[in-house]
Simulated scan of single mutants.
Amino acid sequence: MQNILFDDSYEYRFNPNDIDISIQQISLFYLLRRLEKNEIDLFADYQRNWNLWSAIQQSRLIESILIRIPIPSFYFDSNDDGEWQVVDGLQRVTTFYNFIVKENFKLIGLEFLPEFNGYRFSELPKELQRRIEEFPLNIYLINRGTPEEIKFIIFSRINTGGIKLNNQELRFALNQGAATNLLIELAQSDEFKDATFHSINPKRMNDYEYINRFLAFYLFKIDYNGNLETFMNNCLVQINKYNSDIEHIKSVFFKSMLYSIKIFGENRFKKIDIDRIRKSRINKALFDAISVNLAWLEIPELENLVRNKEELNFEFENIFNDKYFNEAISFATNSRNKVEYRFETVFQLFKKFKL
């Protein structure tokens, strides 16, 4: 394989006139009514990450409202059904829901109104309850019609909350439907957990990111343009839009996970340290290249890899002597040329033993 001059350049190209964002001022009471009527898609989207603030952090937000300190603006996406999805302000919205609707925590650690420590919402004086409910909130609403591929860029730019959502959490919030259900099912599967040594921490949807990467490269690798985050988001958009063959996708994913164990054993998805100085861990770039290449093969080809696994693993270790391959899985791994290099290297390795 000839050496490649790696180029990590990429430019966003879209029409700014397609962006439609309106500015509104609503009362906190109005926000709560939308929550109670399930007109804000919140809890299903962020069931593992929607309640990250401590009781003190939540109490201090309520205290800010009680003493009339302005709080940052909120960003919501309006979908085709008129529902809102929280883009920026998730923990603040959750705090309002916890304290006012569910009343599942008492105020604690107040700095300016310590006399109300230990109070729930319904225990506050009526005047203070009204002050909270009538508190004005500034919101930015991304209106229907704004293209999906542009939304992810917008959300990445405006996602500035106290606990900033990562890109996978944003993708998950934006693409509810068949795509996110697929992420959940595959990430929770025994096949994925076994293949990854039960070592992928699900916090902040890290496991979903592995699955999302697999789906994107398996389904759309030919369209990869060098921007991984947008590429992964577009993958979920396309799965929802065209109702992709979900059962087939699940089948090839499970097949890939099973044969990764059969073929590579303890070395699966790991960057091998030739000098054995440090213990190897799962490498995301290797996970992409190996899992997707396995998924592209038929069962008889995979069985041939199993039969030749000793020789295959010997050559697999030798790959790490290639400095370009090591770069392609270690540094600025998202450039198109580095993606192509590592995928092609693994493809050529399998090609030697699959027949």
Score class of each variant (00 low, 15 high):
Q58Y: 07
V339T: 09
N159W: 09
I71F: 06
L165N: 03
F287G: 03
S256R: 11
R13W: 12
Q348E: 04
A179N: 11
N51Q: 11
L302M: 06
L170S: 01
T180K: 08
Q188S: 14
S64P: 03
L110F: 12
F29C: 11
S27T: 11
N337L: 13
P114S: 12
L31C: 10
N225C: 12
I184Y: 09
S64G: 07
I246Y: 08
P147C: 08
E39T: 01
R68A: 08
F6I: 09
A195Y: 05
I67A: 07
F14D: 01
I139S: 09
K352N: 01
A289Y: 05
L35Q: 07
L128G: 01
I69Q: 13
G177I: 12
W84Q: 04
S330Y: 02
R60W: 11
N167L: 10
Y210M: 04
E133T: 09
I211N: 07
D288H: 07
R307H: 00
K284S: 10
N15M: 09
L128I: 08
R130N: 08
V346F: 09
N17I: 10
W84C: 01
F74L: 10
R342D: 01
S244A: 15
R281T: 15
E310V: 09
E229A: 13
I21Y: 05
K351V: 00
F43H: 12
L286W: 04
I139M: 12
V87R: 06
I246Q: 14
I222M: 15
S122V: 01
L35G: 05
N233A: 13
F135V: 04
R144A: 07
I222G: 15
S54Q: 05
I139Y: 09
R157L: 08
N234H: 14
K279I: 13
F220Y: 15
L174W: 03
K102L: 12
L349A: 05
Y242P: 04
E39D: 10
R33G: 03
L258D: 15
E315F: 12
D88Q: 05
L215F: 13
D288G: 08
L5E: 13
N304W: 09
L297E: 00
W296G: 02
I272S: 05
R34T: 00
L42R: 05
S122K: 14
K151Y: 03
